[in-house]
Amino acid sequence: MTDDFFPETPSARPIWLVTLADLALLLVGFFVLIQANQTLDGKALAQGLREGFGVTTRVADPMPVAVAAMADFAPGSSVLPSSPASIIAWARSAATDPRVQIKITGATDGTPADVEPVTRSASVLAADRARAVAAALASAGAVPADRLTIANDSTPGRRTVTLTIGFGGERP
């Protein structure tokens, strides 16, 4: 290729002006979508956008994100502080879709008293708390054990176990 291949930029209109105009149009479009979202139902807006782009198949609604927790563990203990019935019911309903994975995260409050008695480790205690909740879920048959993941939160906070759901893949 030679220099003659590329056309000259007209001197009357700088190239940055075209980019600025594109950016302004994108910004106007964004504000139109915001205004439409405030005046329309969110599902109606999504349906209108699908029709505008010629999509004829129905797209599945996104999976809702849910969180459950068990709090108020005794310092230095992984014994469940209350009946896990509500968490079991939540997990059972959340796991009706076979793609759902449940992450169980144990935490400690960061005080010297809230550690595992033998190892004196807060991380081990947090993992023990998460394991106790996982065992309750698995023994109740609420969620298959292969769809549970145990983790521990290393930031000092509260003596809790938090359960969150996530997408684990395509439908079998």
Rank of each mutant, 00 (worst) to 15 (best):
V55Q: 12
A12N: 06
L17T: 13
F73I: 02
A66Y: 07
Q47G: 06
I34S: 08
L40Y: 02
T56H: 10
R50D: 14
R13F: 02
A68G: 12
L25M: 14
V18C: 04
A44Y: 01
L33Q: 09
R13W: 08
G54P: 06
F31S: 05
A66P: 00
G54M: 01
P64G: 02
T57Y: 05
V67M: 08
A21Q: 13
D72M: 03
F31Q: 12
P62K: 00
F31E: 12
F53T: 15
Q35D: 11
L25V: 15
L25Y: 06
Q47S: 11
F73D: 05
A36L: 15
L26S: 10
Q38W: 07
L17S: 11
L45I: 01
L27A: 15
L27W: 06
M70S: 02
T39P: 00
A69K: 04
F31K: 04
F73S: 01
F53W: 13
A66I: 13
K43S: 09
A71Q: 13
F30Q: 13
L26M: 13
A12M: 05
M70C: 05
G29T: 10
N37L: 11
L27Y: 10
L49D: 08
A71W: 03
L26Q: 08
A74L: 05
G29V: 02
R50G: 00
Q47C: 01
M63S: 04
A24W: 10
P75D: 08
R50F: 04
P10H: 08
D61C: 01
L23M: 10
G52E: 05
T57I: 13
D72L: 03
L27N: 15
L20F: 02
T56Q: 14
V67A: 07
Q38P: 02
G29M: 04
T39L: 14
A60D: 12
T19Y: 07
Q47K: 05
L25C: 15
R13K: 06
N37K: 11
P75K: 00
K43P: 00
W16F: 13
P75V: 01
V65P: 00
N37E: 08
F73P: 09
L33R: 04
G52L: 08
A71G: 11
A66S: 15
F53V: 15
T56W: 04
D41E: 14
G48I: 05
P10L: 00
R50V: 03
D72C: 04
V55I: 15
F31W: 14
K43Q: 09
M70N: 04
T56Y: 11
V65Y: 06
A21P: 01
D22C: 09
F31R: 11
I15T: 11
L33V: 12
S11T: 06
E51N: 07
R58G: 08
A68D: 14
P14G: 03
L17F: 07
V67D: 02
A74N: 05
